[in-house]
Amino acid sequence: MSREAILGRIRAQLKRGPLEPAQAAACDRRLAAAPAALLPRMAQFADRQALTAAFCQRLTAGGAELRRVTAWPAVPATVAAMLGPAGRPALGLAPALAMLDWAAAGLTVVPGPARPAQPAAITKAVAGIAETGSVVLASGPETPVTLNFLPDIHVVCLEAAALVASLEDGFGAARAGGLPRSITLIGGPSRTADIEQRMVMGAHGPRRLVVLLVGDHGG
């Protein structure tokens, strides 16, 4: 069987048999807990304010649009304003955001996975990573994965309190309640440079990434 053949070749080349119990246990401890991360300075921040500022600066440098919103009830109106005419058709919505009053903002929303012809989808991120200026999206019943990729405009709502410093922190936040089936870090609109190394936005995924940072943590 190929499994045994591959494992056998690895052991033969490493000139040993299966790992001794002590070595195997050491590897399993390595699997159970990560060693201390080697964090670059760009993933370390003096305070929340610096962290938030870095997130906003790096996210927008990646081509995303950013709006600060003081509280959740203000989100639908802000989305409506940002989308303009693009918000008129029915929009995809993560069920996690269904409790907000979208109708009052003049938006028609369809909670659930993405459907063809939806011009925009509104989802909720579990975290934002200041090191890279990325939002962290976890899939689940409340946050269907297809909303992140199919519509032309991807609107992501993110609690300011959910901003974290590093990639490790971002993964940690995403799996705090158990590892989701999929975790995606997104740093801007889809793009490609596959033709003559010219950067073109809107390759396959969304052409616009709009992030609403909700709450005023960190000023």
């Binding site: 890279t132 999929s182 975790i183 995606t184 870090l185 740093g187 609109p189 889809s190």
Partner: peptide, 8 residues
């Protein structure tokens, strides 16, 4: 610094 999409 990081690609646009990183998916696990």
């Amino acid at each position: 610094d990081l690609t646009v999409y990183t998916t696990v």
